[in-house]
Design a protein around this nucleic acid. Structure first.
Lengths: 327, 327
DNA sequence: ATGCCTGGTGTTATCGATAACATTCCCGGT
DNA sequence: ACCGGGAATGTTATCGATAACACCAGGCAT
């Protein structure tokens, strides 16, 4: 930096001002400094800047360690958005979203003097751990509890579930069964709620809820149960992998999809179009979620008080061939 | 830090020495300092340390922006391993592994003064971009070109493909068809090589190669082709998603798996056990790869010259029900 | 003409750690 | 008793940036 200053014939402070787009620099000197920077191929030292400002150009993400499609997509989409805005992203994954794990990851991020935090907080336990985050640290929750008092970006799970359930009822099914994800996830809760509401509004019986984790394995187990119940003609699964397991269980028991049983998934993983049969499902716009989260975060970092504190991204029903009329 | 020093009745330098495990500190004072650190809940400022040492506790990862199972797993596994070793991980994803994209991501990481870089370099184009990385920066490639001169960790793709092909031949198939991934990926190349070698050694005819990207969509396309060729009785797919598409194409054309056609995949994604039928596939130990990469990287960072420059992790055949005897 | 404000710039202090050198103390050898 | 040497500790400089303040010129109101 000193070299740049010398080459441009100004003080290092003026160089700093140019770097930070301060208003009070004459256009002419600004250009001289820019030229010197380019000439020397100078790049500012972020560590020094972080030291003096107490803030780095780094955004910390706290996520559960998983290759689940949703969280993984969210992460890469967010990284992309952040990079475009000139931020690096440091991931801190955690096996369980319990309070102590989150605390330790947050601490690691605080060590790095991150400028802000994004927490993919899809269970209630994560919301509790919010207390570990200092109040003046910019934070955005993705999939978190809207009542937490911090900005949250979510996909409208209720609307997605309503669309899925409605779609099945429209085909003439008397009622719709639901295999949910883990009940402590907000995603699951929203989907259950949307499903139940829609049935009740339609005056349909609400069958007992089956719940599982998000895996094909548990979908298969639930499917084995459902496959032997002749009255089951329509199933709404909380994600596509569960649906995959269910499709296989139905297949093994000779129940054809969609002829005997209709199935709807959630997520629209890239493979869903190639299940047997191609799966009707609900697509979540992870890219939109990630960009919204970044926008909120940048807003907080710049102390703009007018930014909204809850953005809801609508999902979209993708119709394929796993739904038909009851026989 | 000054507060800690005062509380412990020593100088800040002694505190620094305790923090860095310098030898010449009396056990007694070391304990006093530790106590003071705990009491004040003190945490060192990484930015300051990075500034003076020129190195952060941050490892940069360069990866292609994707939710492909392999790369995504690798990333989370690596993050976990790095966290255990006290390092944070900054991801820089890139749409294409071309030279200029890699250069810009590497630059961003250099800005952050990362202590080392991991490049998930699964195509040859990534190897070229190696020139962008300064020679004194510790680097490990994952899935890269062993001839690059930098340390590399790979899964033994050739061995995996051999096991898969061998498995099919052992069931009595005359030959085995192969649907490969993009041919510029090292993974693809290794799998093709292993497949071809095994056929040649067995004296079997080597059928023409079909290649695709990694998606179920292209697997389906290839499957439509293969399904209408009665002589095709055994297919080795370069990954599980391709296999999924192929299974569906076969199903649509009424060719039963494994009765008419046998199929083997690669990766062992969690869903593979719930395909119709459950997929025989080859599992890659991503966790081992990630840990090996970290070990190599730490070795370089500590200037240990005796570390190996190429670690190969063996894959493992997982037998399920998608393979049978030709009819 | 005087004084005040303000746009443009330079000077110095500061962030929180480590590096390099200085100092003290104690021990053992001659 | 003296001196050399190493272990334990303290002092000061340093990394590379920004913050805070000081300064200087010129324009404008009085």
């Amino acid at each position: 930096m000193t070299d740049v200053a010398r080459l441009a014939g100004v003080s290092h402070q003026t160089v700093s001002r140019v770097l930070n787009d301060h208003p009070n620099v004459k256009e002419q000197t600004r250009m001289r400094v820019r030229a010197a920077i380019a000439e020397l191929n100078y790049r500012p030292n972020r560590a020094a800047r972080a030291l003096v400002t107490g803030r780095s150009q780094l955004i910390g993400v706290v996520a559960r360690n998983s290759t689940l499609y949703g969280p993984a997509s969210m992460l890469t989409e967010f990284e992309q958005a952040a990079a475009d805005a000139g931020f690096a992203v440091s991931v801190g994954s955690v096996r369980e979203l319990d309070r102590s794990s989150i605390a330790s990851v947050v601490d690691r991020h605080l060590d790095q003097r991150v400028a802000g935090l994004v927490v993919i907080a899809n269970t209630a336990s994560a919301t509790e751990a919010l207390a570990e985050i200092p109040g003046d640290m910019p934070v955005v929750f993705i999939d978190g509890d809207p009542a937490s008092g911090r900005p949250v970006v979510t996909v409208d799970q209720v609307a997605g579930a309503r669309a899925a359930t409605r779609h099945l009822l429209d085909f003439g099914h008397k009622t719709v069964w639901h295999v949910s994800g883990p009940t402590d996830w907000f995603d699951s809760a929203g989907r259950i709620q949307g499903w139940r509401q829609t049935l009740e509004e339609a005056g349909a019986e609400v069958p007992p809820l089956l719940s599982a984790d998000w895996s094909a394995a548990e979908g298969y187990r639930a499917g084995q149960m459902l496959a032997r119940m002749p009255e089951v003609t329509a199933i709404f699964c909380a994600n596509d992998h569960l649906a995959l397991g269910i499709l296989r269980a139905l297949h093994e028991r000779g129940r054809r999809v969609p002829h005997d049983v209709s199935v709807v998934g959630f997520d629209d993983v890239p493979e869903a179009a190639y299940f047997i049969p191609p799966l009707t499902t609900v697509r979540q716009a992870f890219g939109d979620v990630a960009r919204a989260a970044l926008t909120l975060l940048l807003g907080q970092m710049r102390d703009e008080p007018d930014s909204p504190d809850h953005i809801v991204v609508p999902p979209q029903l993708v119709v394929r061939q796993s739904v038909g009329r009851p026989s």
